[in-house]
């Protein structure tokens, strides 16, 4: 009985009309949405900064000037210096690529595993579905940061392990979404039609169901990048992620924590940087959702 209720909810939540949304019309709707344009624009700018910016920073990210430590923002040091006299502006710019890479790579890991598990669960149903989805429920029952901490503490503190941990932590979200959409799509007549032509399960799943469940995924992936960045920064803040002297924002925030009373900018600036990046991804994701949802016309 409980299973039935779950299924019903999943079908209702899945893409109501998993039809092909034309790229041109998506772009048209995106352009009309302020949040999508601002968010998307910022994301593009951040990517540009992350890969071009490091060549133009006034100082190196590890360049110390102990005499001029904890300096306030000035014309010499745009955002001041930290406790070792390193230029915060340069470190923020150098840290941008780490932040984005952690966000993207972990989401890609979560996406691939989650989509695979979700589509298998939704397509085959029955016991396979129960096993996979209960396992996902267990993962979801842990608070995200706690789960990631547990994984990192097993694998050891390093940025690569943070990416893996955050990736695993985003698996269940994708699995659930894909399972729901798959349940809706596999009941449609064109799946019966292609099966009656002799298509194998693999062909049906990857060639005929997968393209029809992508639009909710794109939205979730964008929003997940934001969550992943937050979690990864959190891990680094706790000393489980990037190790000093890597200019990772969470680690920088952690370093600055000790000087909160006298030199608040050392901790505040990396924090604000995280907020802005996360906000940009969330804005973009919301805008994308509006553009890709066929129910929201105009």
């Amino acid at each position: 009985m409980r299973e039935e209720i779950n299924n019903g909810a999943a079908i209702a939540k899945a893409a109501p009309n998993p039809s092909f949304v034309k790229l041109a019309s998506v772009w048209k709707k995106l352009r009309r949405s302020y949040s999508a344009m601002i968010g998307g624009g910022l994301v593009l700018i951040f990517i540009l900064i992350a890969y071009v910016g490091p060549y133009f920073t006034p100082y190196g990210p590890r360049e110390q000037n102990v005499i001029n430590k904890l300096a306030l923002p000035s014309s010499e040091h745009l955002l001041g210096t930290d406790h070792l006299g390193r230029d915060i502006f340069s470190r923020i710019i150098h840290g941008m690529s780490i932040t984005l890479e952690v966000g993207f790579v972990s989401v890609v890991i979560g996406l691939i595993i989650g989509v695979f598990l979700g589509i298998i669960a939704g397509y085959y149903g029955g016991r396979i579905d129960t096993i996979i989805m209960r396992f996902m429920d267990i993962l979801l029952a842990f608070p995200g940061i706690l789960l990631a901490m547990a994984i990192v503490s097993v694998l050891g503190p390093a940025i690569v392990n943070v990416i893996i941990a955050v990736g695993i932590f985003s698996v269940p979200v994708f699995a659930r979404i894909v399972r729901g959409s798959t349940l809706a799509v596999r009941k449609l007549e064109y799946i019966d039609a292609i099966r009656s032509l002799g298509a194998s399960d693999a062909r049906i799943i990857f060639k005929h169901i997968l393209p029809n469940v992508t639009s909710p995924l794109i939205v979730q992936a964008t929003l997940s990048v934001a969550t992943s960045i937050l979690t990864a920064s959190g891990l680094s803040f706790l000393g489980l992620g990037a190790q000093p002297p890597t200019p990772e924002w969470g680690a920088m925030l952690s370093d600055g924590r000790a000087y909160m009373y006298d030199s608040a900018h050392v901790a505040t600036i990396p924090g604000v940087a995280i907020v802005i990046v996360v906000l940009a991804f969330n804005l973009f994701g919301d805008g994308l959702r509006d553009a890709l949802d066929p129910k929201m016309k105009n």
Binding site: P18, S19, F20, L188, E189, Y190, D192, A193, I194, R195, S196, L197, G198, A199, H208, P211, N212
Partner: peptide, 19 residues
């Protein structure tokens, strides 16, 4: 299936994959 015995369905509106 499809090679020796084929089938066509009732609802032409939903029997083709939209993508």
């Amino acid at each position: 299936r499809g090679n020796e015995i084929s089938m066509i369905f009732q609802e032409p509106m939903t029997s083709l994959n939209p993508v």
